[in-house]
């Protein structure tokens, strides 16, 4: 549990003169859910995109399962990603999306069929042929999560997966995340819904490209003498801003 499956060392990202991520260091332990928090523009998505190899690094290193991301493209196969916009093709149906993602993951016809059969167990049949842009957000979210798991990644990176969905859908989603964790996967998740942070094993709070808080939610709450992660978050950001 203490072994880091992701290690981020002195990671920096500059856009022109703007420092989006300022030489940060943190680790994601194998089999944990790490909550990655911060106000809009804190650098969360930028960090996740660098881990995914979707964005170049200005300086620093990302080590995944002992291998430096800069030195091996294969290591990316260990990663699954679900973005804020759910990474689905809006004009394709749920089935066509899964066929596409399974196809680019190199799965054979038989496997693709079994993936679609599995999908029918979790999404109502009459919705499967509808184009994704016409699906309710909760269903879209389910399909996107399912798509991100198709390559059977060891690590799942979820960028604001619960943005804009109602509390009941969020609850069901987190139940699913917990079930995925129980299958041995490691999960890095960003969210603005701070009540969800209670489900994370550890949290990292990022602000203006810097890590300002890191630890286990219950320990942090005790240590800082606050009633919730929400209060902790607000106080940490205000303290950083000096007011």
């Amino acid at each position: 549990m203490n072994e880091n499956i992701i290690e981020v060392r002195e990671l920096k990202k500059k856009f022109g003169d703007f420092i989006a991520v300022n030489s940060i260091n943190f680790g994601v332990r194998k089999g944990e859910i790490l909550g990655f928090l911060g106000p809009n523009g804190a650098g969360k998505t930028t960090t996740i995109k660098m881990i995914m190899g979707l964005l170049s690094i200005t300086s620093g290193d990302i080590i995944i399962d002992g291998i430096n991301l800069a030195k091996s493209k294969e290591v990316k196969e260990k990663l699954g990603y679900m973005s804020q916009k759910f990474s689905l093709y809006p004009k394709l149906s749920a089935i066509e999306n899964i066929e596409f993602f399974a196809g680019i993951s190199g799965l054979g016809k038989k496997k693709i069929k079994s993936k679609i059969d599995e999908l029918q167990d979790i999404v109502q049949k009459d919705l499967l042929d509808r184009s994704v842009d016409k699906l309710p957000p909760g269903i879209k979210q389910k399909v996107a999560l399912y798509a991100s798991l198709i390559p059977d990644p060891d690590i799942l990176l979820l960028d604001e997966p619960t943005s804009g969905v109602d509390p009941e859908v969020r609850r069901n989603f987190w139940q699913e995340i917990y079930n995925i964790k129980k299958r041995g996967k490691t999960i890095l998740v960003t969210t603005h819904n701070l009540d969800e942070v209670e489900y994370a094993d550890r949290i990292v709070i990022l602000h203006r490209g810097n890590i300002i808080v890191e630890g286990e939610p219950s320990e942090l709450i005790r240590e800082h003498g606050v009633d919730s992660v929400e209060t902790l978050f607000k106080e940490a950001v205000r303290d950083y801003e000096g007011n």
Binding site: G38, P39, N40, Q84, E160, S163, G164, H192, L194, E230, F233, K234, V237
Partner: peptide, 13 residues
């Protein structure tokens, strides 16, 4: 209409 989707907690307050 859903003005705070994707907006952080401090900005929402």
């Amino acid at each position: 209409d859903e003005p705070t989707t994707g907006v952080d907690p401090l900005s929402r307050i």
